[in-house]
Write a protein that binds this DNA or RNA. Sequence first.
DNA 1: CTGAAAGCGCTTACAG
DNA 2: CTGAAAGCGCTTACAG
Lengths: 335, 335
Amino acid sequence: MMNQVKIYDIAGAAGVSLATVSRVLNHPEKVKESTRARVLKIIKEKGYKPNANARGLASRRSTTVAIVVPRITRASVAEMIQGIDDSAKKYGYTLRLFIGADTELQRDLWGDVIASSVDGILFMNDEMTPETFDLLQKTPVPVVFVNAISQTTQYASVLIEYEKCAYEITKEMIRRGNKKILFISTEHKYAVNDLKQKGYEKAMREHDLPVDIIYSSGDLSINEKDFNEYLDKRVPEVAMAVRDSMAISFMNIAMKKGHRVPDVLQVIGFQNTRYAVLSNPKLTCVEIPIYEIGNKAMSFLTELMKQNGDNSQKDKKDHPNLYVPYQVIWRESTK
Amino acid sequence: MMNQVKIYDIAGAAGVSLATVSRVLNHPEKVKESTRARVLKIIKEKGYKPNANARGLASRRSTTVAIVVPRITRASVAEMIQGIDDSAKKYGYTLRLFIGADTELQRDLWGDVIASSVDGILFMNDEMTPETFDLLQKTPVPVVFVNAISQTTQYASVLIEYEKCAYEITKEMIRRGNKKILFISTEHKYAVNDLKQKGYEKAMREHDLPVDIIYSSGDLSINEKDFNEYLDKRVPEVAMAVRDSMAISFMNIAMKKGHRVPDVLQVIGFQNTRYAVLSNPKLTCVEIPIYEIGNKAMSFLTELMKQNGDNSQKDKKDHPNLYVPYQVIWRESTK
DNA sequence: CTGAAAGCGCTTACAG
DNA sequence: CTGAAAGCGCTTACAG
């Protein structure tokens, strides 16, 4: 086991006090050019890195942010984290990862987040029970919602305009002459899926077309059962699902029943995961720029953290939602 | 901004010293039943959580482990992290996430890992340059390789027996009467893919069958080009790819060229991601129990961390690889 | 521009 | 079983 090099070692080797070494790292402009260079050289030679715990404790800034997600295996989470990480690196922040949904948050997880003394929180959970809201209120550091909505203007959200987006693509399919348009959503209520549904319904109603929605599980085998039953009764002209995986699952089952895609049935997904390109035919879908969302959320959080440091007494101001542009990727599952 | 409750507040409210509060949390058996209950009650009421930085600094144990991965968006990483997290929760550990490949490790990232004073490291990177090995050697906390190989017995690896696994499935396809078996690997060298290839080659040679390997990119559009070119020349009876996504991509292209799967061409992937179930036909593949691998790696790491605390002077012992059982999931892409 | 000193919020021998 | 005290490795007013 190595002895890690400490700030004392650097100070000793450079012939200065600890304070100076610390300043070289944290306020370089306050140190004379020549001594700064000398100290820096030794820091490099010895490979010195200040202990994050000690630094965090003394400065009350940990340059660490927490990512809080309900599940890490959700299709979009990994890429979002990649976006967050790239931005975090740019600003010199390090990441802590907390995985858990509402119930875990209630129990202990949020306490762990706070105790870890992060400087800010990226919150990706979409269930906002009153209890969770309460926890958020007691949180001493800024929180940004990432691809989720905060339901209050007190917290910033970074996401796309889901309602508008679903509205527009539905309208476009109507314009192309389709009337029987199915909307496939999740059984479990997610705020963002509700928004998509609202957009779909609005477009359908504006054209006096019948709203047709099924709610299914995130579990593929349950999906298959539900979709089989549905397709035994009728075949829509267009099926639009809140997730790529559900769209593809629906498409595969319809094709097995002999309905040709896109001739008879057209299928549209949401997200543009890799699934969309690996499906056969390739899936048309709304591309959610999830990397961008993560990236932007992190950089916005750095701004809030800066303010939070400057004037912690100032009362919380309202934060608008930040919208990231989306686009539709037309592929083989539509004509 | 809330004032976080400190250990002093608890001590004050309970009418005991800080030391006692601390003991209640860390060595409850050393505290009298009645005072323990009283302190615990107040801790709960006030929602007290010890500051992780301070605790880490004072105890030299942060109950935090680092996950180090080259990319978070790799197909298997999310599920592995889920496995790690579930185990970490059980043992009371918290996670830090460091994303970066070999070059970033060299530059700064490994230094960040060390500075964050984690108690242990879960290392998932598959490039082990001599420089990286050097960094590992200087690391003051235990390291466990997760679904990667350490190339030295000094570090434990948790993974499956890739070579054996590829050997056996190749042999099985030979037994079923196939002779033209293609192996599809990545352009970029990954140690685990080399193992798979070795197993494939061994089986082929044992039966005097010609080894046929193509190396392609992880990028799907480049894949498609490579696979198109290959298929213009010949069609194998079996194609086996190191990743599900490559297998599916190959399968889709072959089908577009009119080769029926599985009648003419059979396809096998590695991993058993969700892609495998969303493909049409559904993909046969070797299931890598990636969740289990993460889970087991974390629990093994806790053991090493315990030892590391007990006797940090003891010299490093050799650690064997820990193998997790795999299985083949036969689906529609084979007959 | 630099150093001595206090303090961040804990834990842990050491006494008693 | 409990408390007073030292110390973990830093940062940051405060003097000079």
